[in-house]
Amino acid sequence: MAARTIRPPAVSGLFYPASARSLQATLAAHFARATPASLPAAPKALIVPHAGYDYSGIVAASGYNQLTPFASRIRRVVLFGPAHRVPLLGLALPQASAFRTPLGDVPLDMHAWNEALKLPQVEVSDRAHELEHSLEVQLPFLQSILPSFTLVPFVVGWTDPAHVARVMEALWDGPETLILVSSDLSHYHPYDEARALDQATIERILQGDATITPDDACGAIAIDGLLLAARRRQLQPHVIAYCNSGDTFGDRDRVVGYTSIAFTEEVRHGAEAIH
């Protein structure tokens, strides 16, 4: 097996600022404008977007704000993001021992790495991780909120959502572990059409409908896997924020949708919806 390395940033200066000072200022601005913490319990799982920070940063920050009251207890993040650059069957871990951002290095949980590799749907592929942004863009947000944490990063390719759910449940553990799914919503529809499509997708997520497709959300397979696991664990979903790129940074002819949805471990009293 190849020697372990540090996975360097691939999209700093593109999706987010390359300097630590500029990145910290950008994050602080997004957190200040984001939805504040409001959940009745600690999030066990989050769905957050992964576009450039100018586009989806406030929606992502709204999701991450929900971790603030509970940040000291979260010590491990199990992260799932869709493959954008490399064709992939199953799920891929990197060979790296840490991921680097302008804010520092995030170490991988090597015990969890080894446990996940016991599952047949998980392989090691540095190529799948090399240029993938869906995982990387989440790390500066996490570094801003959590005092210290390790990472278990999965690029998710074409696979059965039940296989993703199996990985999640294998690494579920207690309140020290956060399950994180990186996904945008609809892509390149006109503004009003996109809002209608995204509202329908969000409603399906709130109802636990694990048949979301890549046309609905680019991280659909991981979302469906989370919904399968959430159903078994009786998690309750909470919509934290929604917008699309027509609201933030771009024209309204071809937009991309973004949402943050948190899942808490409590008895479900009814679905919530955006208005």
Rank of each mutant, 00 (worst) to 15 (best):
L146D: 02
S148W: 01
Q143G: 15
F154V: 05
Y64M: 02
T101H: 08
S144N: 15
V122Y: 03
P153N: 03
P94F: 04
Q143V: 15
P147Q: 07
W113C: 14
V122P: 01
F154S: 01
A41E: 15
A51D: 00
V48R: 02
D126R: 11
E123K: 14
E136Y: 15
F70P: 00
R76F: 04
A92Q: 14
L146T: 01
L146C: 02
S97H: 12
G57R: 08
I74C: 05
S56K: 10
P69S: 11
R85E: 09
I145C: 13
N114I: 13
I47F: 05
H50Y: 01
R100M: 07
A42W: 13
V156I: 14
A60Y: 04
A45G: 06
H129N: 03
S134H: 03
Q95G: 09
Q95N: 09
L142S: 07
A116E: 05
L103D: 05
D109V: 11
T35N: 03
N65K: 10
S56T: 15
D105V: 12
V152K: 04
F99M: 10
S97I: 11
P140I: 13
R85L: 09
H84Q: 10
V48C: 07
V86L: 02
F70Y: 11
M110C: 03
S125L: 01
V122W: 04
V152L: 04
L88F: 05
I58V: 12
L119S: 15
L103C: 14
K44F: 06
L88W: 02
V152M: 03
V59M: 05
F154Y: 01
V86F: 07
Q138W: 03
T68F: 01
P36D: 13
A60L: 04
L142Y: 03
Q121C: 05
E115K: 10
V77G: 00
F80S: 06
L67M: 12
D109N: 13
A37E: 10
E123D: 10
A83E: 05
G52Y: 09
I47S: 00
Q138G: 02
L89R: 09
L142D: 09
A61T: 12
L39E: 06
G57A: 07
V77D: 03
A45F: 00
R75C: 10
E132D: 12
V156P: 11
V78C: 03
A32S: 04
T35W: 07
R76S: 01
V77T: 07
V156E: 08
R100V: 09
V155M: 07
H133K: 02
E123G: 08
